[in-house]
């Protein structure tokens, strides 16, 4: 575990999480959530959990983002908060 890389990725995880819940556009929010999941996958491969890492990369960053984008396209992009 390289602690410099770990700290940088942790900071980016927190930034991506905050921006995912504060962007006033649901499509941008879904994309930021995909970035959050990918940063989380990098964090787990740094910590040595490679099986969790590639499951998260395929399921969290892939399928979840597709679900969010499909749901946003079938409903609305508008949000007030």
């Amino acid at each position: 575990m390289i602690w410099q890389l770990d700290l940088i990725i942790l900071l980016m995880v927190v930034i991506c999480g905050i921006s995912a819940i504060s962007i006033r556009d649901l499509l941008g929010s879904a994309i930021m959530f995909g970035a959050y999941s990918f940063m989380m996958c990098l964090l787990w491969s740094i910590m040595g959990a490679v099986d969790v890492s590639f499951t998260e990369a395929s399921v969290g960053a892939g399928v979840s983002t597709v679900f969010f984008v499909a749901a946003v396209f079938r409903t609305t992009r508008r949000t007030r908060d």
């Binding site: 819940i21 929010s29 959050y36 964090l43 787990w44 908060d81």
Partner: peptide, 19 residues
């Protein structure tokens, strides 16, 4: 207030527990 934002918050909570 938005339902999709609530669902994103639920997912962030789950990944925090996994972390």
């Amino acid at each position: 207030k938005n339902l999709v934002k609530k669902i994103i918050g639920m997912n962030i909570f789950q990944t925090a527990i996994i972390l």
